[in-house]
Amino acid sequence: MLFAHDTEVALGAACGLVNTGRQPTDELADPADLDRFVERWRFTGSRTHDAAELDAVRALRPRLERLWSVGEDEAVDIVNGLLREGGALPQLVRHDGWDYHLHATPPDAPLADRMAVEAAMAFVDVLRMGELGRLGICDAASCQDVLVDLSKNRSRRFCSTSCANRTNVTAYRARRAGSPRPQ
């Protein structure tokens, strides 16, 4: 394991959040979409379930997205800004079947602040370990989703199995089209 479990989950959630805005249609179109996202990634704490909360979460996406395209110094500035604005005060907690892990905001902080600080805390580990190279963009021709490569050999190229399969089938068909057919 490269990072602590909660760091890997937070990186996955940050990646997932960024990718909700990289699709042809916004995957966080309404509060119900946000509810499903929050449930999928198991965010805890208070919620308002309103348009303002949704807007705040959507406003977080481009800030996180920049982390996939900047150098170390700018990434540090982004992470420090997220931590400062979210009033981060790291504490060890245990809840909902999770063993001890870090929370850096109180449970009644706004959802977007909790999401921002949780992502920033995960990126602290990425930066401290010199692992910004593990952030990437899917190699599939028709996809621009971001990804976090947590593989041991740094070989992840695709955001999902679907993109990998689609790319491999396309390459196979191209090879078959160019090879002589048995008679």
Score class of each variant (00 low, 15 high):
3 F>A: 06
3 F>W: 03
4 A>H: 06
4 A>W: 02
6 D>W: 07
6 D>N: 09
7 T>C: 07
7 T>E: 04
8 E>N: 10
12 G>E: 12
13 A>W: 05
13 A>T: 09
16 G>M: 06
16 G>K: 05
17 L>E: 07
17 L>K: 10
18 V>G: 08
18 V>A: 13
19 N>C: 15
21 G>D: 04
25 T>H: 15
26 D>P: 06
30 D>I: 00
31 P>S: 13
32 A>I: 14
33 D>T: 08
33 D>V: 12
35 D>E: 03
35 D>W: 02
36 R>H: 01
37 F>H: 08
38 V>M: 06
40 R>P: 08
41 W>F: 15
42 R>V: 03
42 R>K: 06
43 F>Y: 15
45 G>V: 14
47 R>F: 00
47 R>V: 00
48 T>K: 11
49 H>A: 15
51 A>T: 05
52 A>P: 02
53 E>A: 14
53 E>W: 10
59 A>E: 07
62 P>K: 03
63 R>M: 05
63 R>Q: 10
65 E>Y: 05
66 R>G: 06
67 L>K: 00
68 W>K: 07
68 W>A: 08
68 W>Y: 13
68 W>R: 06
71 G>H: 03
71 G>N: 03
72 E>Y: 15
73 D>N: 14
74 E>G: 09
75 A>I: 04
76 V>S: 12
77 D>N: 13
78 I>C: 07
79 V>G: 01
79 V>I: 03
82 L>C: 01
82 L>F: 03
82 L>S: 01
83 L>I: 00
86 G>D: 04
87 G>L: 05
88 A>L: 10
89 L>K: 08
91 Q>K: 14
92 L>F: 15
95 H>M: 15
99 D>H: 09
99 D>F: 13
100 Y>P: 05
100 Y>L: 10
101 H>V: 08
105 T>F: 01
106 P>R: 14
108 D>S: 10
109 A>W: 01
110 P>V: 13
111 L>I: 01
111 L>C: 04
116 A>I: 00
118 E>I: 11
118 E>S: 14
120 A>F: 03
122 A>V: 02
123 F>H: 07
125 D>L: 10
126 V>S: 11
127 L>D: 13
128 R>V: 04
131 E>I: 07
131 E>A: 11
133 G>S: 10
133 G>W: 06
135 L>N: 00
138 C>G: 07
141 A>S: 12
142 S>R: 14
143 C>Q: 06
143 C>V: 09
144 Q>L: 15
144 Q>M: 15
145 D>K: 04
146 V>Y: 04
146 V>N: 06
147 L>G: 07
147 L>V: 05
148 V>H: 02
148 V>Q: 02
149 D>P: 15
149 D>F: 15
149 D>L: 15
150 L>V: 04
152 K>I: 11
152 K>S: 11
153 N>D: 10
154 R>I: 06
154 R>M: 10
163 C>E: 07
163 C>A: 09
164 A>D: 05
164 A>K: 09
164 A>F: 05
166 R>S: 10
167 T>L: 08
168 N>F: 04
168 N>T: 02
169 V>M: 08
169 V>A: 08
175 R>M: 05
177 A>S: 11
178 G>H: 13
179 S>G: 00
